[in-house]
Design a protein around this nucleic acid. Structure first.
Lengths: 216, 216, 216, 216
DNA sequence: TATGAATGAGGGTTCATTCAT
DNA sequence: CATGAATGAACCCTCATTCAT
């Protein structure tokens, strides 16, 4: 069975290198701008071979999304360790998310690509199911931080937690998207630095959730 | 001379009906998911005919964007009339923007599609130039409201106006995108109503800019 | 009937201005590279209007060819007036033809465009018929010069006149085509000047027909 | 390893058969008159399949041109072997070129099609680069023959070699073009045989370069 | 497992030409 | 006479995907 495990491991490696190259391309050209053709060329594999590892282009995208979620789960978990209050944890997670999106454009692009497929389609594929579960974990981590903040008084008690979960990701997504897509506007027209916008964006979250009776 | 005007009007109507159908399709399938082929079928026009009214697919998209900006300009302008304070005006504009995006998905999709084209490309086409000017007007209206709010004390004085301009649109964009793309998540998983999320999203802006010494 | 003549004259003028603009475009973009669309725009006329003056794109081309032939006829005729010998006349015509082609690229391009249409098609259209007649006149003028040269001893007696007629135009056509299309080759690779090539090309004709017993 | 070579050979064959069919179509309809669509139909291949063998229509044309140049190089090289004088070699090459163009209209059409593309475009594609090199070889072979003729006295010493290189190809090109395009004129109007014209055309070259002190 | 080869469907765009007015 | 509007047919090219081997 050692031989079988080795095979398995090799397969995983090959798969990983495909994913790596895919992320590479997506970082540069976006999801729609990356074709299976290009990917085959970059990986020096045959197009058909790609389909041995991923049943679909969508499946491949899902795999990248899943990878992203896995990494985010780790990062989110670590975020809480050294933080003292719930608010600080939440803000730390925001920071992590921004950094993550900035560092891995491909993850950003893929995570926000699923427009085309209907919810039904999305639920059927095995990968997406796992992805949804992982996403739920992230939600949970963030939710816990919020509730912790309410308990320790750092976060105001009347925050609607479930709304905030969506809002948190949506807000950061919107800002990131703007920073990727509209750099020319804020740089050339408004003469703004990316770091400043991001800082304000994080501040905005803090303003929203922090308990005003405690102070900043 | 009446005849020429009538022709002109008819042409404008035809153009309008093409745009209308385009928005229709885009609402359902997104910008990239809408082809000139489909549009020709939907309008029951020959493909070449479309090119009599729009020199490009991009040009058509630009026209839709411009339409959106025109309407938004009107709406933004009206927003200030009945509002008493700068803060209320800002919030009113946020509300308007949400309503607008909800009512016109196609406007939403098109306005956030120009990512792919480089800044250079965007600046060259005549339509885009006009679009940029219109966008600048919207920015200005919002900026004026903010400053007014600072003057009347409804908005805290240390808001970075230019950052906020980006943030405002980015935030709303992110929330809308999430609501369009992730409806299944917040509905099925979080059992959330869209209106609640939107309410929270608007609140978030208010929390960020309002002058705390005045109170909510 | 004065009114009718004026109308006729106006029509001729309009037609002429269309032709003029067509030649303009063809000079720059070639025959295939010039579309009826462009022509309509340049003339500020409606596309359909063009078809009131020319039943076809081919017809329009034929008209330009005819114009060219008309002008060439004049030039060819004048060529003989001041020349002393048949040889000199022939050489003068060669010079004229080169100058003509250089000055009017559009004439050159159109005259050598009729590849597509079969001989049958070409003979049917009214313009082409007239064109063929004019071409025959040019041939005749050149033939007369040759024969004159044979008589006055400047041209060798054993030239096959009919062959030469074709050869003369073919040779000049080939050289001109090369000069239009391959300028980069002779300039960049061979470091040759256009005037030198043309000079050699004319010389080549002279070498071929002149009576060697007379001397250059 | 045999298997891979066989695959390679099969691919080469398929490629060859596409080229063959392309030449077929071009012979009949010219380069611009031959579409990738038609070619797909003729080869009974899918349109997309063609693009597996040629990245472009231009690339395909370049491949044909290159093929032509390869064959011409062989023919030109052989031409000198049995010939005694430089003049005879030159004339032999002219004969070869005529025969080649007559036998392979597609080669003729493709070789004289690159007018449209600018020099810059032509130099960028890898095929074209190789083509230019091959063309330079042909030029060189001809130049050597000329110089040899000058040495052995068969060609007059005052021929401008570089001019002649251009002239030689231009002349033959012009004649061939005329014979392809104006067959009806010389046949119906002048009652001339193609062979006669070609003979005169070759003679014209000889008249131009031969050393008169030696005699015909 | 991996590949070379192939494909159907569709992408955006442009052409010469012809109506009804 | 002139026009605006329209069109069918064709253009080159690319996509995600699937065979047989």
């Amino acid at each position: 069975m050692g031989i079988r495990e080795r095979k398995e491991r090799e397969r995983e490696q090959r798969r990983g290198s495909i994913l790596k190259e895919a992320k590479n391309l997506i970082s540069r050209n976006g999801v729609e701008g990356t074709s299976m053709n290009q990917l085959a060329e970059s990986t020096e594999l045959n197009k058909a071979t790609l389909y041995l590892y991923f049943s679909n282009k969508d499946d491949l995208i899902d795999a990248i999304v899943f990878e992203a979620l896995e990494q985010l789960e780790k990062l989110f978990t670590l975020a809480g360790l050294e933080a003292s209050t719930g608010l600080i944890k939440v803000m730390r997670i925001a920071e992590i998310l921004f950094d993550f999106y900035k560092k891995h454009p491909a993850y950003f692009y893929t995570m926000n690509h699923q427009e085309r497929r209907t919810a039904a389609e999305r639920l059927e594929t095995p990968y997406a199911v796992k992805g949804n579960e992982k996403a739920a974990v992230l939600f949970q981590i963030l939710a816990d931080c919020i509730r912790e903040g309410m308990d320790d008084g750092s976060i105001r008690a009347d925050v609607d937690v479930r709304s905030f979960l969506m809002l948190f990701f949506a807000h950061i997504y919107g800002v990131m998207q703007t920073m990727y897509a509209k750099a020319d506007v804020y740089e050339d027209v408004l003469h703004l630095d990316a770091a400043i916008i991001e800082g304000s964006a994080r501040e905005m979250i803090a303003y929203y959730v922090r308990n005003p009776s405690i102070g900043k």
